[in-house]
């Protein structure tokens, strides 16, 4: 496989996501497999690059929600073909995230976009869907050993459900062990501060970068603790 083949396949995948063209994304993914482009590279440099481009265009109001949704579909069309071909070690998850729209709210468009971008960035996402009861976030985080709980809501009345999750984590003594991030139409940095969540992502792109920071911090802390253990 030549460098130009790689580039051509990456470009095709990026373009397919940008256009929100599922068929083109599938075609690009199959081409990647046929040309023996490593599937993980095709995801990161092709599909994820496309999603980043789309995120930027959304930010600049060149694209709107319908464009984002179609791009997410194209992204999945490519992912579904490429993911099964990733060798085990390369697909090692970078971290586990519990994701959901909080209780009382059924608006899950933003949440789904975050899911696509997290998956594309190599994280394992446990998606609880929408209108998720508070205890379910806590139980899943426990049983899955997740590092992060990510919650979203579009509407203001359901902001309170986010506070419920934070308080339950506190009660369970899980605060600080499991990090939280919140986002969605009615959510703000101010609200994050008020309920004591660990991070706020104003859009999908920021959510992904902040989750990365949260998980990196957890890993760094764990490693430094290991080192201390070793020296004592």
């Amino acid at each position: 496989m030549s460098e130009s083949t790689r580039e051509r396949v990456f470009k095709k995948l990026t373009h397919a996501v940008d256009l929100g063209d599922e068929e083109l994304a599938a075609e690009g993914a199959n081409e990647a497999l046929a040309e023996e482009v490593p599937p993980y590279d095709a995801i990161i440099h092709g599909l994820a690059e496309g999603m980043k481009l789309v995120g930027d265009k959304y930010e600049r109001k060149e694209y709107f929600l319908p464009d984002m949704l179609l791009s997410a579909d194209a992204m999945y069309a490519g992912l579904n073909i490429l993911t099964p071909h990733i060798p085990k070690d390369a697909s090692r998850s970078k971290g586990k995230i519990i994701l959901g729209v909080v209780e009382g709210d059924v608006h899950d468009i933003g949440k789904n976009i975050v899911k696509v971008m997290l998956t594309a960035s190599g994280y394992e996402v446990i998606d609880l869907g929408r209108d998720v009861p508070t205890p379910e976030f806590i139980e899943k985080a426990k049983s899955e050993g997740a590092q992060v709980i990510a919650m979203s809501t579009l509407m203001t009345p359901t902001l309170m459900s986010m506070q419920d999750v934070e308080q339950s984590l506190d009660k369970e003594g899980m605060k600080g062990k499991v990090r939280t991030i919140i986002g969605g139409g009615s959510v703000s940095e101010e609200w994050r501060e008020r309920i004591g969540s660990d991070a706020y992502g104003k859009d999908a792109t920021e959510a992904v970068s902040k989750i990365k920071t949260l998980i990196d911090t957890i890993i760094a802390t764990a490693e430094s603790m290991k080192e201390e253990d070793g020296s004592s």
Binding site: L65, P66, L69, H107, D108, N112
Partner: peptide, 16 residues
């Protein structure tokens, strides 16, 4: 588009 049809599907119809 928010309460009768699945909202993501509805929004995609705008283009499709």
């Amino acid at each position: 588009g928010s309460y009768l049809v699945e909202p993501s599907e509805f929004l995609k119809w705008i283009k499709r």
